[in-house]
């Protein structure tokens, strides 16, 4: 096992996949010298050349559109958008083109691209650099949506995303870039898409979450032990397709479900999970998510948006009482 950051693990994954398959390449702003905003591309241009780690103009629609074209023409591009907020400059290319080409063209086309668009609050970068729009893409037929929460998963899931023949929206969380985790460098097996991970086991309630919110949910589970409440925390890892079996099995056993996400609660993906579980199992369900406000800049305002440990603990107590 090697200790490495979430960003380093992603770098390792891309390096391994580029070495394995000459059709894999990446394009985006400031990938060469800067090595990506968290160093997740460090040294890769020197290793693989500027035809495979391509520094682009500030042209988001063309970064995404070019990735679609390059995927249709037989390569596996990784389109780096830097922030999911900037990927909004390329929504048509992703949603109208990448997601639908295979279907519209009667199966002639495949679009094996990775649209890499980091999400989430990093602290103080405000309304246009902190959003978590994963539900937009979960809502779009044709797309796979991935949200890794650990270094090992960022390596293994990025590898799966690159090997996937469908377009994958790959959402790393900016708050996790520097978080260190154990990675087995010798094990080059990808982490399969659509399979959740159990973060901790419990009997009284199932807490489903993803990305940076997983860490908060795990702390809440620890805190709940003092109340004699045992919470099972499930990291969805892939949001579409989501691991329905894992969630249903756990929730059927614990008898209660709470879904927690950093993204805005209203219209958020937690609503889909909670209603499916309620319809299927008829058990109590609840959701926690961000209020429907833009992410503010100042510390106390940003804090008012976040779902912290005490909110989760309080909600679980209500559900279990």
């Amino acid at each position: 096992m090697t200790a490495m950051t979430y960003a380093e693990a992603a770098r390792l994954a891309l390096q391994e996949e580029m070495a394995r398959d000459p059709k894999v390449w990446a394009l985006g702003e400031d990938l060469g010298y800067e090595g990506g905003m968290a160093g997740q591309y460090d040294g890769l241009q020197a290793e693989f050349g500027s035809d495979r780690i391509v520094d682009t103009p500030i042209s988001e629609s063309t970064i995404m559109g070019a990735a679609v074209g390059a995927a249709l023409a037989g390569t596996r591009p990784v389109a780096e958008m830097r922030f999911s907020d900037f990927a909004m400059c390329a929504v048509s290319e992703l949603v109208n083109q990448a997601a639908k080409a295979r279907y519209m063209f009667g199966g002639q086309a495949r679009v094996p691209l990775v649209a890499r668009m980091p999400i989430g609050i990093r602290g103080g970068i405000a309304a246009q650099h902190s959003q978590s729009p994963e539900a937009w893409y979960v809502h779009t037929p044709g797309l796979v949506v991935v949200t890794p929460s650990t270094a090992a998963d960022n390596r293994g899931l990025l590898k799966s995303a690159i090997r996937c023949d469908d377009p994958v929206v790959y959402m790393e969380h900016k708050g996790l870039w520097g978080v260190v985790g154990e990675v087995d460098e010798d094990d080059e097996e990808p982490v399969p898409l659509g399979v959740a991970a159990k973060v901790c086991s419990g009997d009284d309630i199932t807490i489903v979450s993803w990305a940076a919110q997983i860490g908060v949910a795990a702390l809440a589970a620890d805190a709940l032990v003092e109340d004699g409440i045992s919470a099972e925390v499930i990291d969805l890892r892939t949001l579409y397709p989501w691991d329905r079996d894992a969630v249903m099995n756990s929730a059927a056993r614990t008898g209660r479900l709470l879904v927690v996400h950093e993204a805005v609660r209203i219209g958020g993906f937690g609503g889909e999970i909670a209603s499916d579980v309620a319809e299927t199992l008829g058990i109590p369900v609840a959701r926690l998510g961000g209020e429907r406000i833009p992410i503010p800049f100042s510390v106390p305002l940003e804090d008012a948006y976040k779902i912290k440990v005490d909110r989760i603990v309080a909600r679980v107590r209500e559900l279990v009482a």
Binding site: G124, A127, P296
Partner: peptide, 16 residues
């Protein structure tokens, strides 16, 4: 500084 009395009362910060 994200304080009261800022151009956006701390909602926006440097880029806004």
């Amino acid at each position: 500084f994200g304080r009261v009395g800022g151009t956006s009362d701390g909602k926006g910060g440097s880029m806004h």
